[in-house]
Structure formats: structure tokens, C-alpha cells
């Protein structure tokens, strides 16, 4: 159990940060009570992890081979990266940190599955792009239906709120299904636990992060999303969930934050407005480049430190 702590911390931070992308809009605008949102998200993250979390585990554990020590080092390295980047205020994706740490282990083993790695990187690039396309298509289709219904103010209010809750449930399911692999895949690779236990531990640790520490993040991140009109916020939520779920089928853990940025960009395209700043796009690049590099360095450094030996001076 002690060996799993790095992974559990990673899952916890993932839950604490990513829940904001799912229920941030609803909670920060007080449409939904935090505890209702947190409970819904936690339950569906665990369900998502248990039902569809296996594919991501196969991809990540297939990137290189692990022994138990390397699994622990990679998870601690990824966790340390998340802690460092968060403390200096840089955007970070736990999934990308985990992949970076796995690359570090792969370098040590001189064994890397480059086709798997290529698949992972292309999915990272595809996340915001895919989310943008989905948001554009969803907005066009659903807006037509919504306008045709011509609902009065109170009814449309109820419909949007219910849809936001439903999109949040779907988003939670997708998050659990997609990201639980990052938390425990290395331990499955090392033979420490089986896949079912891995998805359960992954899901529960993400849920723990949501329940214990997602409130401040939800309230701050959610306020940025709330600036969108309610219908656009719904589209962002839904296209994020669809994108992340799609990559669950592909078997690659991706960043929900980057999916949200892509979706907001899609809304901007439909409305002809500039919804995303250059800084946000730069943050995505940082996520793509700096996070895995730092995680890789962390894993290598930890490995080096673990293997330092004290050699007493020879007095003879």
C-alpha cells in the first residue's frame, strides 16, 4: 500500500484540479451546491474508472517495462512535478506528468515503445483540436434545436440547469474512465496490482481529491467559465466530456483542462469572438512540453538519489 502513495497523491491532485472543469460553472455560480456536485462527480468518476478505465492502463504500462521500484519512482516523480508546477503557478496535467515520468524510466531501461509514445503525443495535440471541432458541431446542432423549442425564461432555465448537471455526470464518468490509468498503470506494469484493483484505486483517489480539495479550484476556475453564457457553458462542458471519453476509447489519458480550452475556442469560432488569450494557448504548450520534461527529470533524479551509496572513508 505504501508503494502506491505516489500514485494516490497523483490521483488526489487530479481530482482536486480537474473537477473544476466538470462542475466549476455550476458550483461557482451556485446553481449546484458544492457537496451535491462533489458527490455526483465522485460517484461517477469511480463508475467511469471501473467500467472503462482498462484501456488507458494498457497503453501506459505498454510504454516501457517496470519493476516495483521504478513504478514507485515514476509515480513519485509525476506527483512531485505536479506539486512543483502548481506551487510556481504553472498549468499542469497529471496525465502528462505521468507520461513524462514513464519516459524517464524508459530512458533508464533503454527501452521505449515509440509507437505507443507517438500515439500518446498525437492524442495530446488532438485533445484541444478535437474539443474545438466537437464544440463547433455541438453548438450548431443544439442551438438550432434550442431555438426551435422557443422555451420561456423559467423553462429554459430549468432545461439548461438539468443539462449542465447531466453533462457534469457524463464528464465525471469520462474523467474517471480516462484518467484513472495515469494513477495506477505503472503499478499494474510492475505486477504490484491487477487491472481491476488499479481502476478502483485510481477512481477512489480521484474521488478523494474531488471531495477534499476541489472546492477552491472549482470556485476560481469556474468563475472564468461562468463568463460564458449558460448555453455556451453547457456546450463547453459537454464537448469536454465527449472529447475525453473519445480518448478513453483510444486508450490515452488526456488533459481535461486542454479539452476545455479547445471547447471554449470552438465557442469563439461559432460566435466570431476571441475567447482564448495567447497566454492560455501558451499554457497549453507549457503543458505539452514542460510537464513531461520536468516529470522525466524528476523521475531520473529520484532514481539517482535512491541509488546513491554511502562509501565510508578508508582509514587503513
Amino acid at each position: 500500500m505504501f508503494s502506491l502513495l505516489g500514485g494516490i497523491f497523483l490521483g488526489w491532485s487530479l481530482g482536486a484540479n480537474d473537477a473544476a472543469n466538470i462542475y466549476g460553472t455550476a458550483v461557482s455560480s451556485k446553481m449546484l451546491k458544492f457537496w451535491t456536485a462533489a458527490m455526483l462527480a465522485s460517484v461517477f468518476v469511480i463508475i467511469g474508472a471501473l467500467v472503462s478505465g482498462h484501456a488507458g492502463i494498457d497503453t501506459l504500462k505498454g510504454l516501457t517495462s517496470f519493476n516495483i521500484e521504478q513504478a514507485v519512482i515514476s509515480s513519485v516523480g509525476a506527483a512531485l512535478t505536479v506539486a512543483i508546477m502548481t506551487s510556481i503557478g504553472l498549468p499542469v496535467s497529471s496525465n502528462q506528468a505521468m507520461v513524462g515520468a514513464i519516459i524517464g524510466i524508459g530512458l533508464l531501461n533503454n527501452e521505449m515503445n515509440f509507437s505507443g509514445l507517438g500515439k500518446v503525443f498525437s492524442c495530446w495535440v488532438g485533445t484541444p483540436i478535437g474539443a474545438t471541432i466537437i464544440a463547433v458541431l455541438l453548438y450548431g446542432g443544439l442551438a438550432r434545436i434550442y431555438n426551435k423549442l422557443d422555451l420561456n425564461l423559467f423553462v429554459s432555465d430549468i432545461v439548461i440547469r438539468l443539462c449542465l448537471i447531466a453533462a457534469g455526470i457524463y464528464g465525471s464518468y469520462a474523467l474517471g474512465a480516462n484518467s484513472s490509468a495515469s494513477v495506477t498503470a505503472v503499478f499494474v506494469g510492475a505486477g504490484l496490482i491487477n487491472k481491476s484493483s488499479a481502476t478502483l484505486i485510481g477512481g477512489v483517489s480521484i474521488a478523494l481529491g474531488i471531495l477534499t480539495f476541489s472546492r477552491p479550484v472549482m470556485e476560481t476556475v469556474g468563475k472564468k467559465l461562468v463568463r460564458l453564457d449558460p448555453f455556451s457553458a453547457l456546450i463547453v462542458s459537454l464537448s469536454m466530456a465527449i472529447t475525453v471519453h473519445f480518448y478513453t476509447f483510444v486508450g490515452v489519458p488526456v488533459s481535461t483542462s486542454q479539452a476545455v480550452v479547445g471547447s471554449v475556442l470552438g465557442i469563439g469560432i461559432v460566435k466570431g469572438a476571441n475567447t482564448i488569450s495567447r497566454r492560455t494557448l501558451a499554457n497549453i504548450l507549457i503543458g505539452w512540453l514542460l510537464t513531461p520534461v520536468l516529470a522525466c527529470l524528476c523521475a531520473l533524479t529520484i532514481f539517482f538519489l535512491v541509488h546513491l551509496y554511502y562509501i565510508p572513508p578508508n582509514y587503513s
Binding site: 455560480s29 451556485k30 446553481m31 425564461l153 432555465d157 439548461i160 440547469r161 461562468v226 453564457d229 449558460p230
Partner: peptide, 12 residues
């Protein structure tokens, strides 16, 4: 007390 969605609140 947070009835309705924020935009509707402001409008009403």
C-alpha cells in the same frame, strides 16, 4: 439565495 442561473437572476 441562488434561485435560477446567474444570467436570468441579473435580468430579472
Amino acid at each position: 439565495e441562488k434561485a435560477l442561473i446567474p444570467e436570468s437572476r441579473g435580468d430579472i
